[in-house]
Design a protein around this nucleic acid. Structure first.
Lengths: 197, 197
DNA sequence: GCGCTTGTTATACGAATGTCCAACAAGCAA
DNA sequence: TTGCTTGTTGGACATTCGTATAACAAGCGC
């Protein structure tokens, strides 16, 4: 009888990805307090030492997890935009509606955001990453607003406003799902867009 | 020569308050990662054991620190309302302006909020506290909106919207002070109020 | 001045943390 | 099959964490 392998080797990129996904699951399930190198390694079915073999430290893994989760959020929103068709205003509505529906607005994602935010003030490189991802989110919204005919002179403030409104509603929706509904959040955001355009 | 006292007794309420204020300072200075029972006790000039003598645990202390800091924020906003006088719209403008000026919008407060948010999902009693403080904030805004003549049927959604807008702008202002200025945040919020009223 | 209450200290404790590293073995190349 | 590269393991390591507790002393009431 051949001894079964004690472990299997993986492509470095695949292994990195599986660790990042494990980190996202642990953050979603156990929150910030329950997230550690050991918990992530256990979730990934891997020994603890491997985490430091692939990442400079736990903070770097959290930062990459945030980037990964945000990318999946962007994909979900893109998918909603595709479904909405080509009408600019319909696409804008789809953008906000998708922002308040699973999997984007889900309390499970919140822990990843909180873990990332807690690193921003003390880690310059993470502050830079945050600035880049915030700018990208806002730029996408500016483009959608421009497609709806908003003059370019007003796009900056409008995008800042809608981004803040979405973030604020999203945060509150994740923190206390009973204060108001996702449908109400959508109505509020679309009303703001009506007033803006 | 009389030996100087090794420690001084304090009124229980005063001691609790000094511990809460020490916790706020540690959170502001060292962030979530640098906050521990020992660090707070050191900051308060007190032995570590005393923290557990006054609080059920570190989480309870964080929750009380959040309540205390939020109360000071409310005081700062109240002071701004007093300065604004009696005109309802001027008071509303003062509300948002104060929300984006120190000491309310300051990166140092962010760590306290983040530490509190990280407890909301796993601690039912802290979720309840959050719901109460959010409801109080929104109720105050609803009253101000009502004074400006907003029909009561629209007050709920308007207050949710403005609260979210302020929260989103405040959060981004704390996370990356260079994306936009406090003055811009004020302009944006006042513009939203113009559209709403 | 004395005793008693209790706020306070100092330390101990076990558990958990992040980081590190020498040994191991999987699986490709020869 | 053999050898070698290197992904992977598993535990050691020094800290640090939160909590608990016995001894201490500050300062009020008498």
């Amino acid at each position: 009888m051949r001894k079964s392998p004690a472990f299997t080797r993986a492509e470095p990129d695949a292994r990195r990805a599986s660790l990042i996904e494990a980190a996202a699951r642990v953050l979603a399930r156990d929150g910030v307090a329950g997230t550690s190198v050991r918990a992530i390694a256990l979730e990934a079915g891997v020994s603890p030492g491997l985490v430091n073999h692939y990442f400079a430290g736990i903070d770097a893994l959290v930062a990459e997890t945030y980037a990964h989760v945000e990318a999946r959020v962007a994909e979900a929103i893109d998918a909603a935009l595709d479904v909405a068709g080509t009408d600019p205003r319909a696409r804008l509505d789809a953008f906000v509606t998708a922002s308040f529906a699973p999997p984007v607005a889900s309390g499970e994602l919140l822990a990843t955001w909180i873990a990332f935010w807690s690193l921003v003030r003390s880690r310059p490189e993470i502050a830079r990453q945050h600035d880049e991802q915030y700018a990208a989110f806002r730029a996408r919204l500016e483009a959608l607003l421009g497609d709806c005919g908003l003059p370019s002179a007003r796009q900056r403030h409008a995008a800042i406003a809608i981004t803040a409104l979405i973030d604020g509603l999203w945060l509150e929706l994740c923190l206390s799902p009973h204060a108001f509904t996702a449908a109400e959040a959508g109505e509020i955001a679309r009303f703001a867009l009506d007033a803006l355009l």
